[in-house]
């Protein structure tokens, strides 16, 4: 927000309006939450009876879900790091905590799906070895978070086609949309084009 405030003081009313608009955008989009349908999809889709006789398909889906949980745990830890850094403004902190809550919801839903398939969800690591020394201001923290969210979008986009259970693909798409919204909001706060292209991979 320091960057945004600096811009406002430089260029007068028009810039200030832009800043206010961006802040309002941040607050409004922060209120967006993953629909309950997404969670229901994950917990409801985990029906082992939907698989054929090949148990490898189930174990592969469980493995993919666990990879997703691993990344979600890392995101939760990263937002915790940001929240405790003292570098985030009040508005940004509020949204960061909300985004962290979304990732926690993803973990809960993914874990339920794994357990219903007879698997065991992975736990969070004790240490993620984050590059803390590179996070010296709010912009750095937001860039770091945006990178994680952007990567998460790619990871889900890559996983969606390889689930054997297509209901899991559908649910992963729901989570992907949520991650993409996070990424767009973070980019907007950073002063970047929130939606830089028509396609994404």
């Amino acid at each position: 927000m320091k960057i945004l405030q600096a811009k406002a003081s430089k260029s007068g009313l028009v810039e200030e309006m832009t800043v206010r608009s961006r802040r309002n955008f941040l607050l409004r989009t922060g209120a967006v939450t993953l629909s309950a349908a997404g969670v229901a999809l994950l917990s409801g889709c985990a029906n082992a009876g939907g698989y054929g006789p090949d148990t490898k398909a189930v174990s592969q889906d469980v493995s993919i879900l666990n990879t997703a949980i691993g990344a979600e745990h890392e995101a939760v830890a990263a937002y915790q790091l940001g929240a405790e850094s003292g570098l985030l403004s009040r508005d940004v902190l509020k949204v960061a905590v909300q985004f962290q809550g979304h990732h926690k919801e993803h973990i809960d839903a993914l874990a339920k799906a794994i357990m219903s398939l007879g698997g065991a969800p992975v736990d969070a690591k004790s240490d993620y070895n984050f590059p803390v020394h590179k996070l010296k201001n709010q912009t750095h923290v937001l860039e770091f978070a945006a990178g994680l969210e952007r990567g998460a979008v790619s990871a889900y986009a890559g996983a969606i086609p390889v689930f054997d259970n297509r209901d899991l693909s559908l649910a992963a798409a729901s989570i992907l949309a949520d991650e993409a919204m996070h990424w767009a909001v973070l980019r907007s706060v950073l002063g970047l084009d929130p939606v830089p292209g028509a396609f994404f991979s």
Partner: peptide, 10 residues
């Protein structure tokens, strides 16, 4: 490097 952004989720 731009393609590598796809890998940065993991």
């Amino acid at each position: 490097k731009a393609v590598y952004a796809q890998c940065l989720g993991c």
